[in-house]
Design a protein around this nucleic acid. Structure first.
Length: 107
RNA sequence: UCAGUCGGCUGGACGGCCGCUCGGACGUAGGCCGAAAGGCGGUCCGGGAGGAAAGUCCGGGCUCCAUGGGCAUACGGUGCCGGAUAACGUCCGGCGGGUGUUGAGCCCAGGGAAAGUGCCACAGAGAACAGACCGCCGCCCGCAUCUCUCUCCGCUGAGGGGAGUGACAGGGCGGUAAGGGUGAAACGGUGCGGUAAGAGCGCACCGCGCCUGCGGCAACGCAAGCGGCAUGGCAAACCCCACCGGGAGCAAGACCGAAUAGGGACGGCGCGAGGCUCGCGGCCAGCGAGCCUCGGGAUCAAUGUCCGGAUCCGGCCGUCCGGGUAGGUUGCUCAAGGCGCCGGGCAACCGGCGUCGCAGAGGAAUGGCCGUCACGCGAGGGCGCUUCGCCCUUGCCGACAGAACCCGGCUUAUAGGCCGGCUGAUGCU
RNA sequence: CGGGGCAUAGCGCAGCCUGGUAGCGCGGGAGUUUUGGGUACUCCAGGUCGCAGGUUCAAAUCCUGCUGCCCCGA
């Protein structure tokens, strides 16, 4: 599993399927090859200060890491756009939301 | 003890499970992505956010670009004096002013208003070499009114007329700026003398200015003398004076390096004017090649000018070459460094010795989840004689905030906790 | 990293340079006109001039520091 690093990849993912939840918006794009899973995170300035943006990104990273075995498929790019609620929501609820969102994306 | 004020330090601790990143060692060139450069992936050990990392307001280091010299101007910044410093708009010490219980302390863009221009609304008589509204004083006039004196008419009286004098209302001429009133500000202030009333008109003190002397590196202070007061405020209005400033910024810069477009060199085709030479041609004309001259345009420090200079030159086809975009690597962390001791200095700071090795990400690591304890705060309860202290329970409680090349400052944000200096009041000895 | 702009009544703006009275339009309220509504007309209310200091007799305006929003260049 790799991280998305280039702006072009994020822009491509933005045109794909979007599934909103309380703490984040999940985007998934099928790249058309058989490469590894790639995941990117976005925490915009609207969320708050730099401390709050870092915290949102780290919690989202942890959500993805702990549930990586369930449902992520090869050849896809995933992008999680953080929202301000990700600062305060319980961690278990965010994990459940992520798995539910993954099932909706796969359909 | 209470109140005030100033300065410094700190910015939770321990543990469990699972992770991230950098460095080193080992292991492996077998997997994945990519055209390439390169990136990702294993195990062990070690390191891994701040006092402001923030705002980006100053000053530097570093890197690249530009830079012939002189003069003038513009633009921006700074502004008491001395020192510290790599430098600063920072810091330290001093001076002056303001403020504070004239205490500790705090604040000050704190050069120039007798170089010039400009502004000072409203109110007010007058607002900048001003002005005379009320008022005060002198002289003159004075219808009427009043007081007094004289005199005339009238037998006395009542009454009336005339003249003079004084007072008052009023008017005119002049003096004055003490007082009232307006204003943010009214051309020194207070007191005594003086005067018709007044006035630096005179005197004393204070303030101001000039000059001399003394102290101080200086800002400035002190003292004596002189001047009769001239110089209102605003320069965070224009401005003047002194000093400082080349520009950009790690997305700087260096290296590697697709696709597409464009660039250069060579070869071929083509060529503003004139002249010379050579070749083809018997000669001329003409054609080709080379060279020279002339003509044109453009560029060269923020601007102008003077002197002196430099550089460049149109189209089409083919071959080759380098520059360079996306991307990657590097710059990338040892630095005007931290700590301790000694010495110098009132201090900022400087010097010497010893010691430590202290983050390096790049859509951006330094974490996620949880437990225990401590501290603080709020609520509830209990105990001790009270101000208060102690104990127990509980809490979606726990400041501001995340390195982005590095350093010195400034500014702003910040739950609380700790330490020290000074001042005032009160109590005890 | 560098540069620039804006903040004034519920909304959109002027006034700032050159300091002294905060104004315009829409909107709101009341009234007149109309049988009624609209239109038109008259009147009225509504402002910490983003915040905090400073200069000045006096600050929306000048200066400094913050806060929020927007734009541009690399």
């Amino acid at each position: 599993m790799q991280r998305l690093r280039h702006r072009a990849d994020f822009l491509a993912a933005a045109t794909a399927v979007k599934v909103p939840t309380a703490a984040f918006v999940l985007q998934a794009r099928k790249r058309g090859d058989d490469g590894p899973i790639r995941v990117g995170f976005t925490a915009s300035r609207k969320i708050g200060t730099a401390v709050e943006r870092n915290r949102v990104r780290r919690r989202l990273k942890e959500v993805v890491r702990l549930s990586a075995a369930t449902g992520l498929s090869r050849g896809h790019d995933y992008v999680l756009i953080g929202r301000r609620a990700a600062l305060s929501l319980p961690f278990e609820q965010m994990t459940q939301d992520f798995e539910r969102a993954l099932r909706r994306v796969c359909k």
